[in-house]
């Protein structure tokens, strides 16, 4: 993809995160902080999805399942094994990444469209397993009373405003890793794979290994989001780990812009904020979300960030034209 992507740039991102970090200092109500933390959690999941869909061109529909694996890993480790949150979170990320590896070993044997179907199946199965495995996950009752984040370096992270910074740090880490990945040789190879697997293979790219690594990164991010979610919400049920969650986050990603760095955050902030502020919308959200997904892929497949790019490109083109005229 040669066209200039919608990039706030490193400084832009610093400003965004600095502004976000200042929010708790304004002493907003718990409601505002809650929305902020939720946006950051779901944006992380959208980043995970974006690594697959945006960079590798593969539609993975099992991501809520990996979100669930991360969430339940943290929940079970802190609640039942009494681990510290700060140990359980990396463990959850690791377990999710390993799960991604296992999925990839089988799923990447299929070609093209079968991958999306296969991962949808995995997503449903993961939710079923979480729902049925009473001894481990609490089954239908769910997992109640997951302890909040414990203190680290003498700072108590269990309270709302302090936990906000945990989520913010996790999001910043996610954005950093994704940005570095996208810019690396590995990231470029992924984009080459998106362009055409056979072509990428003929250029000497080991497609299978690259896709496996991309899937592991993507599920690790989903697991991180899940782990933060577990400590924040304190209650885990199987309903959040199903394909409906994947589809909702997919919508966030599409609104923001698939394959862009700012898209996942932009789309999540906008769509999550909108659903929360329009209470009437919540009951009928899927009646609206369904057609919205269809309209987006039909008319604005590049999302908001992509629209910005296009406007930018047009401006650059216009400027070049003008220079040529003068010459």
């Amino acid at each position: 993809m040669n066209r200039a992507a919608f990039k706030p740039g490193p400084w832009g991102w610093l400003v965004i995160f600095a502004l976000a970090a200042l929010l708790p200092l304004l002493k907003p109500g718990g409601y505002v902080l809650d929305i902020g933390i939720n946006i950051m959690i779901w944006a992380m999941l959208a980043y995970g999805l974006n690594v697959m869909l945006g960079y590798s061109g593969l539609l993975s529909l099992a991501h809520a399942g990996f979100f669930g694996i991360g969430a339940y890993a943290v929940g079970i480790l802190t609640l039942k094994a009494h681990w510290s949150f700060w140990l359980a979170l990396p463990a959850g990320v690791l377990i999710s990444a390993l799960g991604g590896l296992l999925l990839g070993l089988v799923a990447f044997r299929t070609r093209g469209d079968a991958f999306a179907i296969f991962t949808l199946g995995v997503g449903v199965i993961l939710q079923l397993v979480i729902n049925k495995w009473d001894a481990l996950t609490g089954g239908n009752e769910g997992l109640n009373g997951v302890p909040p984040a414990t203190s680290l370096l003498g700072i108590d992270f269990s309270k709302g405003a302090n936990f906000y910074y945990v989520a913010l740090a996790a999001l910043a880490l996610t954005v950093l890793v994704v940005a570095r990945t996208r810019g690396s040789v590995f990231g470029r190879s992924l984009v080459a794979i998106r362009g055409g697997e056979d072509l990428a293979r003929s250029a000497g790219i080991d497609v299978y290994t690259h896709k496996l690594r991309a899937l592991m990164l993507s599920t690790a991010i989903a697991g991180l989001a899940g782990g933060v979610y577990a400590a924040y919400v304190g209650f885990l049920g199987s309903s959040v780990t199903g394909p409906v969650t994947t589809f909702t986050v997919l919508l966030y990603l599409l609104v923001g812009g698939v394959g862009t760095l700012a898209g996942p955050l932009l789309g999540t902030a906008l769509m999550y904020g909108l659903t929360q502020s329009l209470k009437g919308l919540q009951d009928y959200q899927y009646i609206v979300f369904g057609p919205l997904l269809v309209l987006l892929v039909m008319f604005v497949p590049q999302g908001l960030a992509g629209l910005w790019d296009r406007a930018q490109a047009r401006r650059v083109a216009a400027r070049t034209e003008r220079t040529v005229d003068h010459a």
């Binding site: 589809f247 899927y286 979300f289 369904g290 997904l293 892929v297 039909m298």
Partner: peptide
């Protein structure tokens, strides 16, 4: 994705 939207 459009098909998923329709299913929704």
């Amino acid at each position: 994705i459009a098909a998923i939207g329709v299913l929704f």
